[in-house]
Design a protein around this nucleic acid. Structure first.
Lengths: 185, 185
DNA sequence: TTTAAAACCGACTGATTAGTCAATCTCTCG
DNA sequence: CGAGAGATTGACTAATCAGTCGGTTTTAAA
């Protein structure tokens, strides 16, 4: 693993545990087993590191989710697949999840940053389709996406403190129905 | 206004704008027009200040919301009233809203802290009632509350970037239906 | 009026921080 | 091989930070 990646791994762990505030750059470098200088070689400022991590995580969840949806699926099937992919990915990557929550609710974040990512763009297109087909409530597509996202987040938080339900696919289906009922007409 | 309150007001403004990380205690004291020492007289550590602010905000939204629900209301009416009260309070107090989002998604936060507040306890009781009456989905009451909360947050974020909709009560009712559909059986 | 506690001040400090820099090493490719 | 670019080091610094402290003022009750 190259040092840039090592740094991001360590930073993710420390940020999710101690927050942006509680994590010194020197500590990140030290625990990553690299020199202090190399951190600033790859990420000119601490903020750059934080933002780079955000885009990296979004990229990975995007590719993970996209690989799951298949062409012939109905709209509900596609939404279900994406919902489940997001839930499971976040459960399997708790540090990424915590990092994202912190980032998206910090002053770093803005709607512009959100909209700039392919993952969001693709989801919004799907929402538009659902509205056209009269399957979804007639609301702004971006809002529908944000609603789904926040329900995913809440679901993940819930399953994290109830790990015995994580393997119960029947229960997960019921949790999906919450999200589906929220957006469907 | 006493200095303790002044400090909390200023801290709220600075935290919501620059984050916990980006706000120095000295700056809070200076902009509040009080001495540095008095901050640590009232709040022994910066963390104490942050936590005190959290409980203060929860208290205020609790009293605001509770004043709105009336005795004879049906379950749906009560939920609607609480939903609307939360949405409007957050829209009218954007700094409190931003602060809460940051706090609740930071390492400061835990389920224990959440459950410790009356506002949550009362909401959970309402959720229990709805489940018993077979009006709500049969899920953990706390989960139902958390779902509602996150939908309120998403709604507030949405209305903030679409201010022209904030006075449209018809539109707000449609937004409420999202939340209602999510939890109702 | 006395007294004690609480409120208040702001200069100060020791620790910590993000970021720099001059030097060395490693890799790649002509 | 040789040369240039990128990778890497870690000691260093200037700034900043949370929190302290010795002393003064205000408050309120006795």
């Amino acid at each position: 693993m190259d040092k840039r990646t090592k740094l991001m791994h360590t930073a993710k762990r420390l940020f999710s545990e101690h927050g942006f505030y509680g994590t010194a750059t020197a500590r990140i470098a030290k625990e990553a087993g690299v020199s202090n200088g190399i951190l600033f070689h790859y990420f000119p400022t601490k903020d750059d590191l934080i933002k780079a991590m955000y885009f990296d995580i979004k990229d990975r969840i995007f590719h993970y989710s996209l690989g799951q949806v298949y062409k012939g699926a109905t709209l509900k099937e596609s939404i279900y697949t994406l919902w489940l992919a997001a839930v499971e990915w976040n459960l399997e990557n708790p540090e990424d999840f915590d990092f994202m929550l912190q980032f998206e609710n910090s002053p770093y974040y803005s709607v512009e940053i959100e909209k700039s990512h392919k993952y969001v763009q693709m989801s919004v297109e799907l929402a538009e389709k659902g509205i056209e087909q009269n399957v979804f409530k007639h609301l702004t597509p971006l809002l529908l996406f944000q609603l789904m996202s926040s329900l995913v987040d809440t679901t993940v938080k819930f399953l994290r403190i109830n790990p015995e339900l994580q393997t119960d696919i029947e229960y997960k289906n019921r949790l999906f129905e919450i999200a589906w009922d929220a957006i469907k007409k």
